[in-house]
Structures are given as C-alpha cells and as structure tokens.
Computed example of a mutant assay.
Amino acid sequence: MSAAPQTPRNQLRVGRILKAHGLKGALKLELYTDDPDGRFRAGASFTLQVPEHSKWHRETITVREFRWMNQSPVVFFEGIDDRTEAESLVRAILWVDHDETAVQPEDDAWYDHQLVGLDAVRDGEVVGRVARVDHFPSQDLLIVEVGEREVMVPFVSAIVPEVDLAAGRVVMTPPAGLFEDVAEED
C-alpha cells in the first residue's frame, strides 16, 4: 500500500534580511508584505531560504521583537544576540506557511502562487498560461507563456478584468498586437 502524495505547502515570501543593525542582533528588513506589524509580531516563525552551505539552511527562526527605526523595519530574532550572529543571516529570505482557507483581505487581491499556472483566456480561447508575476512600483505584470515566448501583460483591470481561481483562468482583453507575432522587416 503506497502513501498518498503529499500536497506541497504553500508558502509566502514576506521579507528579506538586508543587513545587521547595531550591536545587539537587530536586522533591517526588506518587506514583501502589506501587514508587517501583523506578520512580524513576537512569536511569529519563518522558514529561512539561504544557501545549502549556511548553518541556517532548512532552519526556522522566531521573532523576539519588531519595531520601526527611522522609518525602517527592524527585527530581533530569538537566539540572535550580537552583530556577528546577525550578519550570518544577511540576504536570507523569510517564508511563512500560507493558509488557503483564510479569508482574503480584499476581493481583488491574489497571491502570486494562486495566479501562476492559470490559463490566460482571450475571446473565449486559451492563449497561454501565467508563468509568473513580476512586481514593479507602477504596476504588476503577468508573464504569460505563449508557445516558446513570454508576453508581459499589465495586471490592471482594463486588461485583466477577471481572475477566476475556481475555473483556473484569467480573462484578458489586451490591446491589439499584444499576443500577435510582430512581422519581421526585410
């Protein structure tokens, strides 16, 4: 009798450690969450993404304290009490398990892992599949694989009016020429 295959855990990237701050183990963060005070509350645990040779590989770490210093997010972790130990975590990416059953905070907000793999549909036909989501200050882009190429689609309601997770698709109304091949000139 074989065991049922395990479903991969959905994890969200919520931050990256930028640098050590001070002498008592504080670390400055780059945030990938819109709720840093909630995500980094005391007792919150994160899985670390670091190179395999790091002593932190496959480890989890727990928040002791989170605060804002000069408008920068700074975190203290349990067991990290000096600058040397803090520096061993620089560039680590912080991941947290995501509960798919949790209520979405907004009707028109999705996590990247929910969008990746969805069919891109235009005029009722599948034109490609969402490969990834790229985030930029002005807007996000859905990167859609169309055959052997990738098409960058602005993730705005005028071009992507519908995201249907249950049906596994995003409906697109792109401007003319976005998905068509460009004719080569002689």
Rank of each mutant, 00 (worst) to 15 (best):
W95S: 04
W68V: 02
P105T: 09
I61V: 15
P161E: 08
A176K: 10
G128E: 00
W110Q: 09
T7Y: 10
R39D: 06
T7L: 13
V121Q: 08
H135C: 05
M1A: 08
R91K: 12
D181A: 14
P137F: 01
A167N: 10
P36M: 06
K19T: 03
I143S: 04
A109Y: 04
T33F: 05
G117V: 05
V144E: 05
T7M: 13
D108C: 06
A92T: 15
N70G: 01
M152V: 04
V74L: 01
G128L: 07
S54M: 13
V163M: 09
L12F: 06
F46P: 12
R132S: 12
G128H: 03
D81P: 00
H53V: 11
G15C: 15
P161I: 09
Q49C: 08
E78N: 12
L27H: 01
R13T: 12
D134E: 11
H53D: 13
I143T: 11
M1D: 02
E100W: 00
D37E: 08
V121N: 07
A20D: 05
S138R: 12
D82P: 00
L165K: 13
V130L: 05
V182M: 06
A176R: 10
E125G: 07
E145G: 00
L31S: 03
Q104F: 10
